[in-house]
Simulated scan of single mutants.
Amino acid sequence: MRHVIALDVGGTGMKAALAGPGGELLHQARRATGRERGPEAVVAGILDFAAELRAYGADRFGEPAGAAGVAVPGIVDAERGVAVYAANLGWRDVPLRTLLGERLGSIPVALGHDVRTGGLAEGRIGAGQGADRFLFVPLGTGIAGAIGIDGRVEAGAHGFAGEIGHIVVRPGGTPCPCGQRGCLERFASASAVSQAWAEACGDPGADAADCAKAVESGDARALAVWRDAVDALADGLVTALTLLDPRVLIIGGGLAEAGETLFSPLRDAVRRRVTFQKLPEIVPAALGDTAGCLGAGLMAWDLLDTAAATATAATAPPASPAATAATPPEVTT
């Protein structure tokens, strides 16, 4: 059975799968990233994991994987297949596409940014399915975005498209590691809400999920923290939808697990802020933590589809001279 390898590399764990032609996950596996052992060990672990998946697929399905897709965090040069930088993994300029291709028997390999890869899956087979324009925004440790256009995700001229978390929503506000002050992710990410709630309730171990529960119980301190986060998020999202005009706005990540505790006030806050803009449908992500793997699989199948189309075009017989000759203009006297 034809299949591809899909890998989603995170800061603490790796999720992997063998994906069938319809994007279905035929086999899934997980293991620790092992970042505490250093970046070289992380890369070695990725290569070993991929090789094990290839061997499993060949044994289980009677043939090796035809391609591989890999999603990684940080700065990614997808065109060159290089993982440029990831602070949480400690690597710089890792030629992952080349390394994986060599380890996996020279099969084609696609490398993508983790959020854009997850957005690709949400757009094609998840919450954005059928929408010609979507914006996927996961609210996790930070905030990023994937800009979906006609079934693909826009990376931008330099690979930085979609960095909505660094829209300044509170000028002069909390410093951000990016060098700016008042960035969206300093106020509306799951980690920002966790920090704000821990300070408000006096419990250093409290997190965003605890804050959401306190909001549901009517705690005034939690309501204030939640309102500040929702207002900041709405400000950032309205800036994004003004620029991008998405048909669907997909919210994912840990904070979205609060369900309507988040979505009800967020929809109201966005609605109050729009003037001439068209209000998009605001929906929760549908694929959960499998989005990265599913997207990596889709990237791999895209490589095979492109290769097949190129091969077909190359072997097509040339058009006959009679068919391609231009019709001479009619001359009248």
Score class of each variant (00 low, 15 high):
A220K: 03
L241P: 03
I75N: 05
P39C: 13
F49G: 01
P21M: 03
G69H: 14
G218S: 10
C211N: 12
A198Y: 10
G202D: 08
A224C: 00
G295Y: 04
I143F: 10
L111R: 13
G205M: 07
R227N: 06
A161T: 02
T290G: 04
L279S: 09
G45H: 03
A71P: 07
T141G: 03
A229V: 01
I164P: 00
G38V: 14
G118W: 08
G151I: 10
R80V: 07
A161V: 01
G182V: 12
G10Y: 05
Y56H: 14
G182K: 08
A240P: 06
I251W: 09
A258N: 01
V193F: 06
D231V: 12
A110E: 12
D235Y: 07
G20F: 11
R31K: 15
T306R: 06
G288E: 05
A206E: 09
G45E: 05
L47R: 11
W91K: 05
E330K: 06
D210E: 14
A311H: 01
V230C: 05
A190S: 14
V84Y: 03
A44Q: 14
D219K: 02
L96Q: 09
T141Y: 04
K278M: 02
P246M: 13
G105S: 10
F61S: 00
G162D: 08
A234L: 04
V76P: 03
L287D: 09
V42I: 15
T332D: 08
A311D: 13
R2G: 02
T310D: 05
E257I: 00
E122K: 11
A220V: 13
G295W: 05
L99C: 02
D150Y: 08
L249N: 05
A86R: 00
M299C: 08
A316C: 02
F136A: 14
C211G: 09
L249E: 04
A196F: 07
A319K: 09
T261D: 01
G297P: 06
E185H: 14
A157T: 04
F160S: 07
A291F: 12
T141K: 01
A286T: 04
G156N: 00
S106V: 00
P317K: 13
A83D: 00
